[in-house]
Design a protein around this nucleic acid. Structure first.
Lengths: 210, 210
DNA sequence: GCTAGTTTTTGACTATGAGTCGTAAACCCG
DNA sequence: CGGGTTTACGACTCATAGTCAAAAACTAGC
């Protein structure tokens, strides 16, 4: 989350193929390594991995033509960084709004869109917001996160009621004066869990009484 | 769907490692092959692939210890076969209820459970039922499919209203005398789409009016 | 042909979650 | 101390889902 938009960290290729195009961080698997270990290792070269609050496997891409140099498989992961963190990144990397991607290398454009889709789904039926929002936040701030990630307007009233009813967020008891000009100070909230948890949003045909 | 239970096709290993244990159909990727092409090719050795009504990627497993012979990655797919089809299968393969798995080879037990989980989710927020139910069916039949796949009771009244409201199923106009003893003949339904479609079940914070 | 039994369909009712809107509360600033 | 601003809260409405019971439509037996 940067400048009110969902952004993705890409680095610009200096060599062919796709010289000048932007690619996702990643690299080849080392022998004996878990997929997740490998992702974290390659990510560590670009950004402080401790700042990645959530990491989950997205999909494996195996089109024989996806790399012009030859046949290569890639397993993509979705990693999330909380709003407010500003990790140091190397000179050849930049954050790009997911909705305005520059020319991308390989099939990385499609992968980014798949990540956005996954994120949008999870925001609706899980507490995935914890991985995007700062540790504590006001409802107005959380609303901005949801607006940027979901791509449509979100009512703060509704957001509060829904997330509080599902026991996803809770008030900390603190208050924080509103940012710009005056106004009633906002309540400060936090997410209850710092781990992904499905909220079982709708019972979906499950009988209510036993 | 067999005998009122969700079942999975496994074959019994004749050689070490895991001799005698049951494994998912599959095999190694051939050069130049798409992942899905490869899955279909290996599947074709066990079952008529045309009878697989839906196929989707599940996840990639890369634990270095998952195969005692050495380091090997596996990308698992979830494939569904409609109720009523009874494909010929080789002598060393058998259908097993997903809830009572025999000893499994490698991490295939975990993969099967992941597939069941994925299926249960999709049944709730998509028209995935088309891939399990026969082309036309009565509500009582569809209910049995959902009961077996979801693992809990489902009200036929509710199922009809929910799926009709979401425009997932529609009546064909036909009627079919009920199976066993008398009773009012049941209406015959079909799924509207034969392709997976998300039904966007709950608006999830999306404003209603524009 | 009538009646009892079965199965499916239908509608009324209720519960719950979600969206809208207006108003009250709590602050800043001049 | 009043105007402007932001947040919080409550009342209302709407949509979807679950429960229940009664009606409908058939078979089978007498």
């Amino acid at each position: 989350m940067r400048d009110g938009a969902l952004q993705v960290l890409l680095w610009q290729r200096a060599r062919e193929p796709f010289r000048g195009a932007w690619a996702l961080p990643g690299g080849v698997l080392s022998p004996g390594e878990t997929l997740e270990e490998s992702i974290r290792r390659h990510l560590a070269a670009k950004v402080d991995v401790r700042e990645v609050s959530h990491l989950e496997q997205l999909a494996t891409y195996g089109e024989p033509t996806r790399d012009p140099r030859g046949w290569e498989l890639a397993t993509a992961y979705l990693g999330l960084v909380q709003l407010g963190l500003d990790p140091d990144v190397p000179a050849d990397t930049r954050w790009h709004p997911v909705d305005e991607l520059p020319p991308t290398a390989f099939d990385h454009g499609a992968i980014v869109l798949a990540g956005r889709k996954r994120l949008r789904g999870k925001l609706s039926y899980s507490n995935a917001g914890f991985a995007l929002a700062p540790p504590t936040f006001t409802l107005a701030e959380l609303r901005e996160v949801y607006v940027a990630a979901l791509g449509h307007d979100v009512s703060a009233t509704n957001l509060r009621r829904v997330l509080e009813r599902r026991a996803v967020i809770e008030p900390t008891g603190e208050r924080r004066p509103s940012g710009r000009a005056g106004g009633r100070p906002a309540e400060v909230f936090r997410f209850r869990d710092a781990q992904l948890a499905i909220t079982d949003p709708f019972a979906a045909l499950r009988p209510r009484r036993r």
